[in-house]
Design a protein around this nucleic acid. Structure first.
Lengths: 350, 350
DNA sequence: CTGAAAGCGCTTACAG
DNA sequence: CTGAAAGCGCTTACAG
């Protein structure tokens, strides 16, 4: 690790000057010649600033804390961490990730992060919900991901759940489905109500109404399977919008039992929490992929903009740190993210 | 954030003394009375050391770098990160996580981690494979997780793939399956060969041999489904050991098409990469869960023991940092991890 | 335009 | 037993 001191010695200037130059604060203060000499030898020696030493003075570490709850039970959390890391890395930050089992533990972990001088936090839930924010967070900038503050005070980013239901249903209508069912979950999740509302709105906008017996919300495997069996037998739906992958899989199994072929006799769209259909498992499902990557990405992006707006005169990174990729537009971070529909073969061709 | 300086002022001693005491280096060097006075006020003020400032002198940050490849496509990676974080947190470390798309990017990210002064690395792959280690890693302690060094030089931790095949097959034999099939993958994965070998050994040990036409390795959904259909029709297997969850799901669908009931007519065991069966999806699968959590946990544990053996006189953490949970036994980190069989209803009762 | 100096919070010989 | 001093790598007034 080369230091400013070494560069100063090689160049025959003082450390102060080196610091000024490498932080791009030299305009009108350092003679252009010496400045470029400094820059050159920094380049030649492969100088990289020591962010920890810097932080001792500036109390900015360029470390972000990423707090997630219950990552254990959420195989699909990876995408969110990935998005967050990509944004962080692009913006010249680095991420300290930490896990909590709940609010008690959370405060400990937050304290640990604070000792390491993080500049701010992302607090990530693993499914869209209303949450209370640990008070220890409030001391620094933070943003919620896949959750909303109960008081709607904190910046947050969530999937556009209503739109998920709307788009999926539109797609089924476009495939000429004449009798569309909604297979939901009876667990009290924010997403459940919103997706169902989107579903209903899409039907309404198309002048359709199949009645509320075509919209079931069930929990548990046996119960779900027999409810779906019953629905298939009595109602003969030809299109299904499923709340999640578990429901979709149950529709697949029930269809197989009734000799119905997906993509021919019936069409199925589900939200693919586990990305298992999209990536590994087949037969594939025309699915809505939750925007975990995007939520992670925009959460960090938003967080960095909060951090940097409170000391806008922040130094630009040395050239070696630059990414040639275009920077995300920090201010454009949306509060809700539109989801992509992944087209596979399980919606019947018209 | 209270500092040593503040404690020194309140106690009327010098910063040196405070440092000595709070690092538990006071035995025989500081009068017990002053020592306990210092400790008390540290406690009262809620003193927490600033690890970054400390690192400037010691060049130990108690930060670990966790490098993972392709987390994007591996929804089940979360468990590994979680295990790693738990171990880190218990041992008083913190984890900087970073993602790479490949070896090129890897070196950049490693460089970034080094600037932040990480004490060592975990280099995690998302499926068991032989890998070459980026040379830039070698400068610090590191351990591989879910991968082995091509030259078998570096410490690493992997699932015991042979045993997975052996145990799963034993379980099917114990359920009195009379005709057991192996449904594998034709992708060239380390695990494929090893699990199949375990499968064969278990059959051999039980004096069974169903012939190699009962062991198929397929890729792609259509190909897999029709191969399984053909096998069901011609061989009538009553037990299936599936390489992964995709294969298991295909067996489920084929069984449904043939009117066979899982757990009654046939038994199925599969390796559950995505944890989707174990946690969300039903009907549930008797499955082998890959020990992602454990690999993460032991990888960090092993890493910390490597780090600390090179400077064994390392200071103990201040009391507030202590965890009451028992510390993992660092030296006991295994090189291979035995996997758990998760019992669900899909193996027929005898 | 440039450098000497102080200081961020901590550790570590060294002197007393 | 205790403290003054130097230093880790950096930034930032301040003096010249």
């Amino acid at each position: 690790m080369t230091t400013m001191k070494e560069i100063a010695q090689r160049t025959g200037v003082s450390v102060s000057t080196v610091s000024l130059v490498l932080n791009n604060r030299d305009a009108g203060r350092v003679k252009p010649g010496t400045a470029s000499h400094v820059r050159q030898t920094a380049q030649a020696l492969g100088y990289q600033p020591n962010p920890l030493a810097r932080s001792l003075r500036t109390s900015k570490t360029r470390i972000l804390g990423f707090i997630s709850e219950e990552i254990a039970t959420t195989p699909y959390a990876g995408g969110m961490i990935l998005g967050a890391q990509d944004a962080a890395s692009r913006l010249g930050y680095v991420m300290l990730t930490v896990n909590t089992d709940g609010i008690a533990n959370a405060n400990d972990e937050i304290a640990a992060l604070q000792r390491y001088g993080v500049d701010g936090f992302v607090y990530a839930k693993m499914f869209n919900c209303l949450t209370s924010v640990p008070s220890s967070l409030a001391s620094l900038p933070f943003v919620l991901a896949d959750a909303q503050d109960e008081e709607h005070r904190s910046p947050s980013i969530t999937p556009d759940e209503f739109q998920i239901g709307y788009d999926a249903t539109r797609r089924l209508i476009a495939a000429d489905c004449a009798h569309i069912a909604y297979i939901g979950s009876s667990d009290p999740m924010l997403a459940q109500g919103l997706r169902l509302a989107g579903h209903r709105q899409a039907l309404k906008d198309a002048g359709l109404d199949f009645g509320s017996h075509m919209q079931i919300s069930v929990s548990g495997n046996e119960a779900a399977l027999s409810a779906i069996d019953r629905m298939i037998e009595s109602e003969h739906p030809d299109g299904f919008f499923c709340f999640n992958d578990a429901r979709a899989m149950q529709v697949y199994l029930c269809a197989a039992r009734h000799g119905l072929h997906i993509g021919e006799d019936i069409s199925v769209i589900g939200v693919d929490n586990h990305r298992v259909f999209a990536e590994t498992l087949s037969p594939r499902l025309t699915s809505v992929e939750l925007p975990h990557y995007e939520m992670g990405f925009w959460a960090v992006s938003k967080l960095v903009s909060l951090i940097e707006e409170q000391n806008p005169s922040e130094a630009t990174l040395p050239p070696t740190d630059r990414d040639t990729a275009p920077m995300p537009l920090l201010d454009s971070a949306p509060a809700q993210i539109h989801c992509r529909l992944i087209e596979k073969e399980s919606v019947r061709r018209r």
